[in-house]
């Protein structure tokens, strides 16, 4: 287990299994939700939670994504003290939004839908904002917007690039218009990054819909997606209600978006680290040419989220 998890035990990977998330770490085998193939857990983790048979990219918690990218001990979390408020005094039946947020946080093992902070990739500093579907479908509410905005501002202060890794079901309905306007807030924050000529890299992961796709996540300088990720504005169920027709196979997948000219590239999980290192170096060099960093992109290897030392 990497150092960040030891220091912050509440951030241990969760075991909620409703959406293809990992049922382990304790189980010996995992079953692919797409092709039903069984994988030996250690192999599965070493493959960065990509099915060795069909290439299905499992949904992973934000902290696992960060662990896959960050140099050992390089991650510093930002703004972990922010918690959901209840601006509308919202409740459905017996359950208030506040109660739901608290119970979700304890179930999901994270306090909100976003984890943000500073990390390094082969010595290259990077501001990261990663969403976690386990917290209310990674819907965008005030905490999400504020964390992302602060991350943009810190990236500008430190003159470093920003990486956002986004999955989301859309708006945090319980926050009403506060939620909708986070689209404006986060996108506005990105203009400062742009004026400083610092790049924003966006990785869209499964599933990414609604207000997140229609705001900060797709105005990035480089928009990437994981293979097979479903990405769109309206969800498939809404579209099928409108058209009363089944949607074709592959509709709204990353590959579909690539074919329709809507994203820059599809990046398999195993290539992400190298791709990011190349991009960071490229835009850094464009801003201010300087010698190569300590680890060349090709020498970088993803660590598995649950440990770098499990060689056998």
């Amino acid at each position: 287990m990497r150092e960040i998890f030891r220091r912050q035990p509440k951030f241990r990977p969760t075991s909620g299994g409703d959406d293809g998330r990992l049922q382990v770490p304790d189980d010996l085998w995992v079953k692919c939700p797409k092709c039903q193939e069984l994988s030996y857990t250690k192999e599965h983790l070493r493959a960065l939670r990509v099915c060795h048979r069909c290439g299905y990219h499992y949904r992973i918690p934000a902290i696992d994504r960060i662990a896959m990218l960050a140099d050992e001990d390089s991650f510093t979390e930002w703004d972990n003290e922010l918690r959901t408020a209840d601006p509308l005094g919202f409740r459905v039946g017996d359950e208030s939004y506040q109660d739901k947020a608290v119970s979700t946080a304890s179930k999901a093992g994270i306090p909100e839908a976003v984890v943000s902070g500073l990390l390094a990739i082969g010595g290259r500093p990077l501001a990261v904002v990663v969403t976690d579907f386990a917290f209310m479908g990674a819907s965008m509410g005030s905490v999400y917007g504020e964390k992302l905005t602060r991350a943009c501002e810190r990236a500008v202060e430190r003159e470093i690039p920003l990486l956002t890794v986004s999955c989301s079901g859309g708006a945090r309905m319980q926050e009403g218009l506060f939620s909708l306007l986070q689209m404006a807030k986060t996108t506005t924050a990105l203009t400062r990054l742009g004026h400083a000529r610092l790049p924003h890299f966006s990785l869209l992961t499964d599933p990414c819909y609604g207000g997140v796709t229609a705001s900060y996540a797709t105005v990035a300088d480089v928009v990437m997606a994981e293979p097979g990720a479903r990405i769109g504005f309206a969800g498939p169920r809404v579209i099928e209600q409108v058209t009363r027709q089944k949607l074709p196979e592959g509709f709204q997948t990353a590959e579909f978006l690539l074919e329709h000219g809507l994203i820059d590239t599809v990046v398999p999980r195993g290539d992400l680290l190298t791709t990011l290192a190349i991009l960071i170096d490229f835009y850094q060099n464009a801003r201010n040419p300087r010698p190569a960093r300590e680890t060349a992109p090709a020498e970088l290897a993803h660590s598995t989220a649950n440990g770098t030392s499990d060689a056998g």
Partner: peptide
């Protein structure tokens, strides 16, 4: 737009 949103801050 910067100030839109409502949240709480727990102690660090």
């Amino acid at each position: 737009y910067r100030k839109i949103g409502r949240w709480q801050e727990t102690s660090k």
